[in-house]
């Protein structure tokens, strides 16, 4: 009886809330540098999670997801720096801008399959990169947009505990709130009938059409939603990074977020978050020993592909299942 109810209980815990509360303590229990890393992890996690809505849930291999991250950071950065628009307007504008970009580009992309889909997403992201890199008047060209201001966080000062924090730490709290709300929304979407339809498309697009789904329209919807959330991540990153630059949008960044997602595991909701945390921390550790981080990353990626194709969470799940089977057999023997 006990055994049977344990997994159900685990499932009922609102994990997003638990992770949120745990992460919220970092500015008080950790160093300023810990908060810096935690901010980076939170933003990367949202970016990877948005990609996984395509990769893991819908089965679409987008090699240009960084385009929507980039649109988000430029829209938010330009609005806040050039036009002094408050964050509360700039952030939704970034999300909407990215979603619109994803709608226009996605409209064409979902007409293609497999490698052609990947190539077209790559081409579109390079178009965005070329625009950001060359359109000096608006995007600052290769100089980018330096000194994007922090949002006005005076309202936090009146809250006990939060008021004592530095602005970077207060921004971390804000980032955490935005990211966790986004993750909760994505989790809800995946668990919804719409999310179930996306998984049927991943599993078998032909069959999905014959249960009455307009596959392209669903794929486009997923593309737009994923683009919107990537835009939110991009907007936060521009502020965190104290500037928006065209190399945010260069194509290897798309590969990087893809590695993050796969590293964590695309078959599990928390996979991208685990992948983001692992990659950011690992990068931190390894770059203190050697400048050859890409070499290490490439080696990790090879290991991942040949030894743990399910990623970290996939590997853990398999391990746990194996353990449970083993102990179960011992108990019954």
């Amino acid at each position: 009886m006990m055994k049977k109810s344990a997994p159900a209980l685990v499932r009922r815990i609102p994990w997003v809330l638990v992770v949120f509360v745990a992460a919220l303590t970092i500015p008080w229990v950790g160093s300023r540098y810990d908060t810096f890393l935690a901010t980076q992890i939170a933003i990367s996690a949202l970016f990877a999670m948005s990609l996984n809505l395509l990769l893991g849930t819908t089965g679409l291999v987008s090699f240009g997801h960084v385009a929507y991250f980039g649109i988000g950071s430029y829209v938010c950065g330009i609005l806040m720096k050039t036009y002094a628009v408050p964050f509360s307007i700039a952030l939704p504008a970034a999300a909407i801008g990215s979603a619109l970009g994803a709608l226009v580009f996605g409209f064409f992309c979902v007409r293609l399959t497999k490698i052609y889909f990947a190539m077209l997403t790559l081409a579109f992201s390079q178009i965005i990169w070329a625009i950001c890199y060359k359109w000096n008047d608006v995007t600052g060209g290769d100089q980018g947009i330096p000194d994007v201001p922090y949002p006005n966080l005076d309202w936090m000062s009146s809250i006990p505990l939060l008021g004592d924090l530095r602005i970077a730490q207060q921004f971390y709290v804000l980032t955490l709130i935005v990211v966790m709300l986004s993750l909760a929304a994505i989790q809800r979407i995946i668990a919804s009938p719409f999310g179930l339809m996306l998984t049927t498309i991943r599993e078998n697009p032909e069959r999905a059409a014959s249960i009455g789904l307009n596959v392209r329209r669903y794929e486009l919807s997923a593309f737009v939603i994923a683009g919107g959330f990537a835009g939110i991540a991009g907007a936060l990153f521009g502020i965190f990074n104290r500037g928006v630059f065209s190399d945010f949008v260069y194509w290897p960044k798309s590969a990087e977020v893809m590695i993050m997602t796969i590293l964590g595991g695309i078959d599990h909701f928390w996979g991208p978050v685990v992948g983001a945390a692992t990659l950011v921390l690992l990068n931190q550790e390894i770059t203190s020993y050697t400048q050859y981080w890409p070499f290490v990353l490439g080696t990790i990626l090879l290991l991942l592909l040949f030894v743990f194709p399910g990623g970290i969470v996939g590997g853990l799940t398999t391990g746990l299942e194996w353990l449970r089977r083993k102990t179960g057999r011992r108990a019954s023997a």
């Binding site: 668990a191 919804s192 009938p193 999310g195 998984t199 049927t200 249960i211």
Partner: peptide, 29 residues
């Protein structure tokens, strides 16, 4: 079929799609 989904999810997906619940992104499937 949809091989990585459970048997129940396979059938549920088809039922939901038939009832026009596909675009519903807020209820719990």
């Amino acid at each position: 079929i949809f091989p990585k989904l459970t048997v129940l999810e396979n059938v549920r997906a088809a039922l939901l799609a038939h009832r026009g619940q596909g675009p519903n992104f807020w209820s719990r499937a």
